[in-house]
């Protein structure tokens, strides 16, 4: 019975971190998606732009996220000119640093996924759009993007789950999301296994819900009859 009480109390405390975990995920995915779109467009439209984007993707996909978070959080604070700049009110906050690092990381992966999506858009569809006199922007909005996103959705769903998991690293820059709270409980009770099992269950539920949501979206976007 005492065991159950402990698990219940732990679960309750951990659930208090869920809003922060969900907020970090949603925020970084939203910012990351915008950045990814910009990166994909930059890559498609100019040669120096493409080189720049590949360098960006190379660095962010080739190094651990933990190092990126750590670098943005502690590295930025090392310089007086950064602390005097207009950016400091943002960089001063651990929440902003974690969100920035997660979004930059997400953008690198998502832009690659989007690139794959663009590559899979049939040439015929674009030509058809042009033939009926669509402008570049309209073509992008009504033909290319929807088709590319539909193609990219399964891979992007995996990326979303990766992002939920990645928010756990925000605990290493003082944020008290689910993993951060788990640390704190352990340091008071020294019962690592039970606490981490509870935390793991929370992440599984979050990811299960996300997977279902992506599946529903996929079904909605899918062409009729498939």
């Amino acid at each position: 019975m005492r065991e159950l009480d402990f698990l219940g109390a732990t679960m309750l405390q951990l659930l208090g971190g869920v809003p922060l975990t969900v907020g970090l995920t949603a925020g970084s995915v939203a910012v990351g998606a915008v950045l990814a779109l910009l990166l994909a467009l930059l890559r498609a439209n100019s040669r120096p732009g493409a080189a720049l984007v590949s360098a960006y993707v190379f660095v962010f996909r080739g190094t651990p996220l933990l190092l990126q978070i750590f670098f943005i959080y502690y590295g930025a604070g090392q310089f007086a000119f950064v602390r005097a700049s207009v950016l400091w009110p943002f960089l001063r906050e651990p929440w902003c640093c974690a969100l920035l690092a997660l979004a930059l990381n997400d953008a690198a992966y998502a832009s690659e996924i989007l690139r794959g999506g663009f590559a899979a858009v049939p040439k015929g569809a674009v030509e058809a759009g042009r033939a009926v006199g669509m402008t570049r922007l309209l073509l992008l909005r009504r033909v290319v993007l929807p088709l590319a996103i539909r193609q990219a959705l399964p891979a992007y769903g995996n990326e979303l789950i990766a992002m939920v998991k990645s928010t756990s690293l925000a605990s290493l820059v003082t944020l008290m999301e689910v993993t951060g709270i788990a640390y704190a409980i352990i340091s008071e009770t020294y019962r690592a296994i039970e606490v981490f099992l509870c935390a793991g269950a929370i992440y599984l539920v979050l990811n299960f819900a996300l997977t279902r949501a992506v599946a529903v979206l996929e079904a909605k976007l899918g062409p009729a009859g498939t």
Binding site: Y74, A76, G77, Q78, R83, R92, P94, L172, T174, M176, A184
Partner: peptide, 18 residues
């Protein structure tokens, strides 16, 4: 209260006025 994994990390944050 903001908690850190090491004391040196709160020194870094104190120096940068966080």
């Amino acid at each position: 209260i903001r908690t850190y994994k090491t004391t040196e990390e709160h020194d870094l944050d104190l120096a940068s006025d966080r």
